[in-house]
Design a protein around this nucleic acid. Sequence first.
RNA 1: GGCGGAGUAGCCAAGUGGUAAGGCAAUGGUUUGCAAAACCGUCAUUCGAGGGUUCGAUUCCCUCCUCCGCCUCCA
Length: 466
Amino acid sequence: MRLFDTLTRTERELRPIDGSTFRFYCCGPTVYGPAHIGNFRTFVLQDVLRRTLETGGIHTLHVRNITDVDDKTIRDSQKADRSLAAFTAGWTTKFHADCEELGLLPPHIEPSAVEHIPQQITMIQTLVGNGNAYASDDGSVYFKISSFPDYGRLSHLDERELHLGKTQNARSNSDEYEKDSLSDFVLWKGRKPEDGENFWPSPWGDGRPGWHLECSAMIQEYLGDSFDLHSGGVDLVFPHHENEIAQSQCACGGRFAANWFHTAHLLVDGGKMSKSLGNLYTLADLAARGHTAMEVRYVLIGAHYRKPLNFTLDSLSGAREALAKLAKGARHLASKIEPDTRLTRADFGPFQAAWDSLNHDLNIPGALGGMFTGLREAAQLTGTDAAAALAGFNRLLRALGLTLPEEMVHASSEIPDAIQSLAESRWQARLAKNWAESDTLRAQLAEQGWLVKDGKDTYTLEPAGN
RNA sequence: GGCGGAGUAGCCAAGUGGUAAGGCAAUGGUUUGCAAAACCGUCAUUCGAGGGUUCGAUUCCCUCCUCCGCCUCCA
């Protein structure tokens, strides 16, 4: 497949550099609270990238870290009066549960920062030894930007140098006199009283690793000095990824990531998502509004990854209908296939255009459109052709990580008994042509948030839309 | 201020130098005790505004307007 690369700003063919396995790294969550749907946009898109590669026959090695030590995890664990380990373990578990609900494939390796302190220290020692880093009086170690001429290539820093110079002057009067120059970033943070028990011994004294270094050390451990792709949200381009490049290339040599995959942000109602605006949603928030994780996933993949996605609650309701429509189309297609039909082809049939879209810079919205139009074409097919089309459709679904509702009654197991019996009474009244009674009971169900849909011989119950 | 990105129907959203995918909503019809559901249709002469290049631009260039992100932690 072809994918846009942030560093070269060109579209490139993705092929494993080792010839067999496509090895990639994704910056994972900092576990100090529940992840929100903006975080999940990134993880879901990375998941579709992986699934698309795998559907195309490419083996992958997916590494995604857990950041379990930084300012926020320490601060909030203290607030919660729990150990850092217990605190972050709780949120890690929650994160995994959310991921599973969203249909995310677990990474093959999921290293945590705390579990890789020795590797981080070793990397810092190498950097100090190479003259790329220096210790300060307070036991911290900084990376010396001026020792790495390529610094800034990813984020086009050279075009911002003038500004940076100004800032340096402005800030060199501030407290941060520890650093040779302002843009030097911290690799190891010397122990401070507010860190509490959260410190580790090092050649420079007690302290903890800097945030940027975690990823570099874990990448070195599991992927080596050169690998296929590195991914994260656009906000990580600078300084996080820029710093990773500097650390890793100086410490390990190698080319680091061959491709950079950055995902645009999620907006809510056209603006930034934030707690203060009350528009920051977690999976649990949306579940409380009656939306399934699969509906959330459908919305999250609904815009091209390099464009901001405008999230609205209405789009979630739309997703429910769209998923139902896909399910219906698939069922219709399946009904055209004789039980003993043999699959004789392995192409995508009417879904070829959808598959092509996916492989052209991960155009998921284009692929989704192709699935609907493909379904329309496929409706005419029978026998082997229908079987081949359905197989293509299902491969596409798997690439997108979508699972379709078997029946429209996706909440059937969660219908309270009281509601169920109310609905049953209504159905009996209706069969007896007691319309007044039937309508009254239907209104009662509606009041309690349930929608009745009458079929020919039976009825279904659904939570009413929001 | 610097860098990067975006403005396509009521909403979400693809796409292309050759005349606008798809989904939701809406709406007409069939069906239904009435609704809903289901099924069959309809739904942008137009792509933020104004110029320019071109036989032809929504797609390329210029200017302007609006919005978003990064420049400090952030998916």
